[in-house]
């Protein structure tokens, strides 16, 4: 177990240490005080526990590593993550999980606006609420929301699946409610279990693309 104190080490030193860590290594990071770009570009299945709030782009482009943040996260948490797991015990600011291709992102608290924007395969589970324009242009993967969703959820969505337990303030263009079939309940149950969230799948509704904007259609012009 290695401990890195950001009062003593620079961000460069931190990331360098984490990036060369070997499979199975454990790291603890202290005194983060909202610093940016912490624990980014990791490639191995190491465990990183970050104590304190983090700034922009924490866990950016993560591959394989498990990163836990005991605190709140700034904008762009786990942006473009490829694999591995990122968990934040508090809230996450805007664009959490933006463009992420894979892995699991768990936000125990609330996520702000544009959560899962342009997501490309990641699974995101939010314990609380999500802000407006979440899953904007979301391409694939799954977004699970145990609380409520803000305005214009899933605007211009492609093939991402969204499950919401609470209220949805409004749906964005081309996003619609869809039937919860057996396979969806199974998928949701697995994700809730992985995220360690104790809710019944029957409390959730499913949303996805109406696929009306996939090709230019002049009769849909009011939606553009």
């Amino acid at each position: 177990m290695a401990t890195i104190d950001l009062n003593q080490s620079s961000i460069r030193e931190l990331n360098e240490k984490l990036q060369v860590g070997s499979s199975g290594d454990n790291f603890t990071v202290n005194n983060t005080v909202g610093k940016h770009a912490l624990s980014v570009g990791l490639t191995k299945d190491i465990n990183v526990e970050i104590n304190g709030h983090v700034g922009y782009y924490c866990a950016g482009m993560n591959q394989e590593a498990s990163i836990k943040i005991n605190g709140n996260a700034g904008p762009g948490l786990a942006e473009n993550m490829m694999s591995g797991q990122v968990r934040v015990t508090g809230n996450a600011s805007q664009y959490a999980g933006a463009t992420a291709h894979g892995g699991l992102l768990v936000i125990e608290g609330d996520a702000s606006s544009r959560c899962g924007i342009s997501m490309k395969g990641v699974n995101i589970v939010v314990g609380g609420n999500i802000g407006h324009m979440s899953a904007f242009m979301a391409q694939s993967g799954t977004l699970v929301v145990c609380g409520d969703a803000g305005d214009a959820m899933g605007d211009s969505i492609y093939e991402t699946k969204i499950y919401v337990r609470g209220k949805v303030k409004s749906l964005g263009t081309d996003c619609e409610e869809k039937e919860m079939k057996k396979e969806h309940k199974e998928e949701l149950a697995t994700l809730l279990e992985m995220a360690q969230m104790n809710y019944s799948v029957d409390e959730f509704r499913r949303y996805g693309s109406a696929r009306k904007l996939y090709n230019f259609d002049i009769d849909q012009v009011d939606d553009y």
Binding site: R12, H36, G55, Y56
Partner: peptide, 9 residues
């Protein structure tokens, strides 16, 4: 900050 992140990666 984005540039810093890309450099760190």
């Amino acid at each position: 900050i984005k540039i810093q992140e890309l450099r760190e990666i």
